[in-house]
Nucleic acid binder design. Structure first.
Lengths: 350, 350
DNA sequence: ATTTAGCACTCAGAAAGCAGGAGTGCTAAA
DNA sequence: TTTAGCACTCCTGCTTTCTGAGTGCTAAAT
């Protein structure tokens, strides 16, 4: 059944007043807020019906109404107006986007920090790729008789390196040979495949050389491992402590725990919507049932895209958050497009 | 004026009872806890004096006493007994210490996470060097006509690398030459010196080459910059929400903010005590006035040492925390000693 | 058939009052 | 110097009352 125009504008008013004041809103307040002039009694009748229909809720008998998740949903789908970013805001954001393109990991944390600063909500950022990450290139650099540097470039264009203390002396002249070997037999492999390959190699190589190869491959495994694991960066989690809905330490604790410990379970948009909004119980995760998530994706280049999400109470200024987040995502896309991450041969092939 | 034996044992009892129960402790409870059998009335007299002297405080007239910071101080200095780690504990810790030596940054966060898990308090970890960090080595690796990898090794043995998209074509053959140039003129320099040096170079090099050099040096600057800045890793901050002293959201918020935003201001031990304890107002930082910090240092190798600190309420089980932290620090020292970070030539010289 | 005014009703939250109890400080006896 | 005894304090938890915002219903007005 379709909602009357008036019902809709009442819902809209309820959401907007509740978002602004964080208190149940009563019939009088709505009457004042509506463009049409109607009496509070009329509003009361309408609200009784809307409650019946599941759009509004009462914390207790003699309080005003608060929007239900269903109400928020219809609000974001139909009712909410395009939030207009103020000149100030866009300028601030543009300034924030003037950062130098850095290593992807740092990039993500930085993006998160920026957004969190603008939103006053916790933010998470991650990069998602379509394919499994592999090593695409090895380099070994000699430091001295016993130490060398392993440089590993992964399929998502990250380059990681570390100083390794050889368990046996390493000949500087040998290193290029070993690197060539690594590049030949250990590239394009997932973590498990790497370990296997290494096992198979054990017999074919002189012990000393094998030690070194093994160290390098071990390192590469480590890199791949936390390329998968530590992909999510959360920032500004404690901002929720400023919000009235998390004044209860128990609730705050629950959400904070989730954000810091299980952040990998944070939602990623399924379809290719630029921005997706998940309201309260629409979240699968138990810990997010009372919270909402707004998540946007942007182009990173390569076969990757970046995800950046804002977590807040269901009472969230969806219009504003969505507007800001899209703006940011668009900005990031542009940034990555300019300082383009180079295509690796392998990507170009397909 | 010296405290009588009995006064001391009363203080000890007050601290230990208060630490255990988080409630003001009364004369009767103390009488029961003391080895000597004395009446609660005697205790009351003694406590009145101790309060006079500033060791004890009363939240209000008819409540028990709680220890003042001064009391905690004398407790850690003289009264507290060596906490004996249980077999279980040491085993768990040993198991935790079986981690593979990785990049220093990751190492620190890992150490922090481990300790925090054992302590149930927030933990911060950082590495402090005596000298300013400089770049000790550059490498440039060719990827394709336009891209190359910059590898930078710093004086604290970190190796960082990134894929750079050349603003102009880069000739693979040229790269070693440029790297040699970088190693000659840009090593052993602080961030500011790097920038200066680069300015001076602008005129002397063909434009195209200069672009590339400039990109590499820029990257090195970035590395040095956040080698200084992002040196502190905090973990488990929200554990404080489980403690009764931070049930007040305001207090919790203040401390959490401090931990996440100004963690660089966290205390580092001045002298070379293995473990240092800072109690409440002994902390310089405003935000730590009601909290205590136990911080230990351990040897990382090179000219660096690692710092690891536990933050908690003044009502903290100092004996246990100190014991665990020392054990951990010792373990970390040993680890770093085995998988020794190699000395760099420069360090060896002096 | 809506809309509106009016009014009794409900209920959370603040303020006030009350009893219980833990703990103190003091005094006087041991 | 220690201890028992006792009056006193004042926090805590409890019930009580009060107030006000907001509702739902009814009956009149449009």
């Amino acid at each position: 059944m379709e909602l009357s125009e008036r019902k809709k504008s009442i819902l809209k008013a309820v959401v907007e007043l509740y978002v602004a004041l964080a208190e149940p809103v009563g019939s009088k307040a709505i009457a004042a807020a509506l463009p049409q002039s109607v009496s509070s009694a009329t509003i009361r009748n309408e609200m009784a019906e809307l409650e019946e229909m599941g759009y509004l809720e009462k914390p207790h008998t003699s309080a005003g109404r608060i929007p239900s998740p269903k109400c928020y949903r219809i609000y974001v789908n139909e009712l909410m107006e395009q939030h207009r970013l103020s000149q100030q805001e866009t300028e601030r954001m543009n300034r924030a986007l003037q950062i130098r393109l850095q290593e992807l990991d740092r990039m993500l944390t930085q993006a998160g920090q920026m957004v969190s600063r603008f939103m006053n909500y916790p933010v998470y950022a991650l990069a998602a790729g379509k394919k499994e990450i592999t090593v695409v290139r090895f380099d070994l650099l000699s430091v001295n008789e016993t130490d060398f540097i392993a440089v590993v470039m992964t399929s998502d264009h990250r380059v990681k390196s570390q100083l390794l203390h050889g368990e046996c002396p390493v000949d500087a002249a040998q290193l290029p040979v070993l690197a060539a070997l690594l590049n030949k037999d250990f590239t394009g492999k997932t973590q498990e495949e790497l370990s296997q390959q290494l096992m198979g190699m054990a017999a074919q190589l002189p012990g000393l050389l094998f030690m070194t190869v093994s160290q390098a491959v071990d390192y590469a495994c480590g890199v791949l491992e936390d390329a998968c694991r530590r992909m999510v960066y959360t920032t500004g989690a404690n901002r929720i402590l400023d919000l009235p809905e998390y004044q209860d330490v128990g609730k705050a604790n629950q959400l904070l725990r989730f954000l810091s410990e299980e952040s990998t379970a944070l939602p990623a948009p399924e379809d290719n919507d630029p921005v997706q909004i998940l309201i309260g119980p629409e979240n699968v995760e138990q810990a997010l049932q009372d919270s909402s998530v707004v998540v946007a994706s942007y182009d990173i280049g390569g076969d990757m895209r970046g995800l950046i999400g804002v977590v807040g109470p269901t009472r969230m200024d969806y219009a504003a958050v969505e507007a800001r987040l899209s703006y940011f995502a668009a900005g990031l896309s542009r940034m990555f497009d300019q300082g383009k991450l180079p295509k690796h041969e392998e990507d170009v092939k397909e």
